[in-house]
Design a protein around this nucleic acid. Sequence first.
DNA 1: CCTACCGATCGGTAGG
DNA 2: CCTACCGATCGGTAGG
Lengths: 199, 199
Amino acid sequence: MTEVLVRSYANGRARRQLILDEATTLFGEVGYRAASLREIAARVGISHPGLLHHFPAKQALLLAVLEHRDEVDAQRFGLDHLQGVELLRHMVDLVDFNATRPGIVELYCVLSAESTAPDHPAHAFFVSRYARSVAQCAAGFEGAQAAGLLRPGIDPDAAGRAFVALTDGLQVQWLLDRDSVDMATVLRATLAQLVVAGA
Amino acid sequence: MTEVLVRSYANGRARRQLILDEATTLFGEVGYRAASLREIAARVGISHPGLLHHFPAKQALLLAVLEHRDEVDAQRFGLDHLQGVELLRHMVDLVDFNATRPGIVELYCVLSAESTAPDHPAHAFFVSRYARSVAQCAAGFEGAQAAGLLRPGIDPDAAGRAFVALTDGLQVQWLLDRDSVDMATVLRATLAQLVVAGA
DNA sequence: CCTACCGATCGGTAGG
DNA sequence: CCTACCGATCGGTAGG
């Protein structure tokens, strides 16, 4: 009886994870507003009321998708434990890894643009996410500056903002024409212009 | 009779322009897929079949909006007649001007992301638009290099791609938090790192 | 340009 | 009391 209950919970978690995966894909493909719960549910192999049993509303599903993705990536790359130039290099590595999963890149690319509308359900999420990303990269450049690795005349805050912006812009170009764009290479070349050679 | 006919044509063109303006705004607010012809028509003050009299389908309206915008901006800033660093500086000026019209920035930001999907009606438009923009900026950096204004070790092609990417990424950040982001300042600071001082 | 519609599909919820 | 759904349908809206 305990066995049955445990398996039931496990099945529920597995199903929930499958829903998150398919929602991630479809939100990336067509955006939040144009994605339908029926299409996500169909890809999972359940009905859409079945989906709404796991996530009470479409908005809840969206926020769960975004938070789950950031959580997994933060753990995988341990960005919170890094500083200075090392942090920036790991972010380039993350971009390089993202080139193996276009669905994730699409998700953030499409949703960040869509969420610029103030009434979008993910607006607050992306406002705070960008504030955090920019501050993190700015701290990376400040650390580089403190270590004497930053070229003179560079403002760490502006460089942090530019680094995040450059990453985002490259993702759009890469999604539009994957064969012509190597995100990590352009990112590393630009980074090399900001930190002293050999750093 | 001629008078009436002329006025009729003029009214038709004015109406068509009004539709383009309102479509530009709404496409920017919610994207192409989530924008409805009924909403655009309502803002213009006509019915949605009335709108379809001027533009036979939703796709035709989208492409008319995109082409009209690029045409107007190309004429206003005369980007086609510029070369080298001058071209790049004028693009910064265009970004600065765009900070006075968030609707236009939203339009390109949201639609470029949405159009990364291969079956999106504006996909081909944005693929060729980016190829053109990147080539134009790369030519700008090549001109700077030929004039001895480019810092050594910089690849003009990568710099051109990065310049476009940086511009796009800054627009997302600006739309999310307009008070905290000055696009032109970050863009000029980055440009100053690539071309020699005082150029 | 209008009203009056179509096939379909939307997010969400009812009872079972 | 719990979970994991189903078939059917709610009020509204999509492009045409």
